[in-house]
Design a protein around this nucleic acid. Structure first.
Lengths: 204, 204
DNA sequence: TAGTGAATCGACCGATCGGTCTACTTTGTG
DNA sequence: CACAAAGTAGACCGATCGGTCGATTCACTA
């Protein structure tokens, strides 16, 4: 917690001058771990971020902490993206869900797409004690809860199962899009998503 | 093909005496790369296989070759498993598909389950030039073709898309079962699988 | 029984890993 | 201006990485 106005001013000035080492580290680590995998060397990250070795350990305690924090902040952005996409669909839960999946369908088209960063990290980090696993699990649970809430609002008879189903389709399509995009997994998933959504009570 | 009785005897003797270095390497590498991830050290594999360093390079040319061969042989076994499971369902394509997925549903219950070995390897090996990627892609394509053939035989109006859909559910459920088994992804997937199967023409 | 090829052991290579540490510079504040 | 905090630069640590190689042992065959 920050009380002093002075400290506040300082932070603002620093932010205004550009990103600090912490932000540069997070950005570089996010880019490199996604592109090169979670096993990129620390040196590559430091070089890319143009940050001293020591700063990494002061801010994040080590590589594991940095990776976990990268995913934690990314999860916030992703969840915000889901919320925004849902909101773009208006008030009807079915329309909102369709808007969300219409948005998700465009994600794999981005150049350099390599699948869901969270799934990739989860499967790449073999050590079950790695702090990133908790971050990822919690993130995926929140996404599922988001879908579940929409399905419940739409009157789906089993919103819990249906939420899991939508997540299965999202993750499955991401995995497939990363390695065999020619199979057009997003389109295939879309049809099943529509089936799940249409299991809800027709608009009253 | 083996013609000579002498050679046969020799091979039998070798097999009877135990697995050769090549087999021990494949077994150890398969176990370790699945459990510890594709980044296990060569020394760990050699120690576990009780094989000399040199033998690895003579048989597989290097670590990448070993990993690729592990996946190649595993893919044969997996595809045989799919065929057997389908066959256990008799002649009706719908029954056959249901038998297959009933079998797949039990896979994540195995102790030490960590998801689909092929998906895990595909996502862990960041280098797109790694020989394992081709092996995995081909394997997944053959599985999809297997499903597609059943769906076509069952009279599904769009067996290609439906095949991709079933694969999405399989891979999505595997990923989820590995990190959040409490969500019971297999059961959730099963319901959608049934929907896809039931899209086929009812038994004539 | 002599010989051949495969498999073994283990030293060794340069490179890189994650992490620690000292010394110096910069920055903004009191 | 003086000072404390933060950042930088870079040497250094032990460990491990994938890979090469010489020397030896072993099994099987001719």
């Amino acid at each position: 917690m920050v009380y002093s106005q002075v400290v506040d001013t300082t932070k603002t000035q620093k932010a205004a001058r550009g990103e600090g080492p912490r932000e540069r580290l997070l950005r570089a680590a996010g880019t490199l771990t996604y592109r090169e995998g979670a096993h990129v060397g620390i040196d590559a990250i430091l070089t890319s971020a143009d940050v001293a070795r020591r700063s990494l350990y002061q801010h994040f305690g080590g590589k594991d902490g940095l990776v976990a924090e990268v995913l934690r902040e990314a999860s916030e952005r992703t969840e915000q993206g889901y919320s925004d996409a849902l909101a773009s669909g208006g008030d009807d839960p079915r329309t909102r869900l369709r808007a969300l999946f219409a948005h998700l369908e465009t994600v794999p088209d981005a150049p350099g797409y390599r699948g869901c960063p969270f799934v990739n990290a989860d499967l790449s980090l073999a050590d079950p004690a790695h702090p990133a696993h908790d971050v990822i699990r919690a993130h995926k649970r929140r996404l599922r809860a988001l879908l579940e809430a929409e399905l419940r609002a739409a009157g789906h008879p089993d919103p819990v199962t249906a939420g899991v189903q939508l997540m299965l389709l999202i993750d499955g399509a991401a995995v497939t899009a990363a390695s065999r995009p020619d199979e057009q997994p997003a389109a295939a998933a879309r049809a099943l998503v529509e089936l799940v959504i249409s299991q809800t009570a027709p608009a009253s």
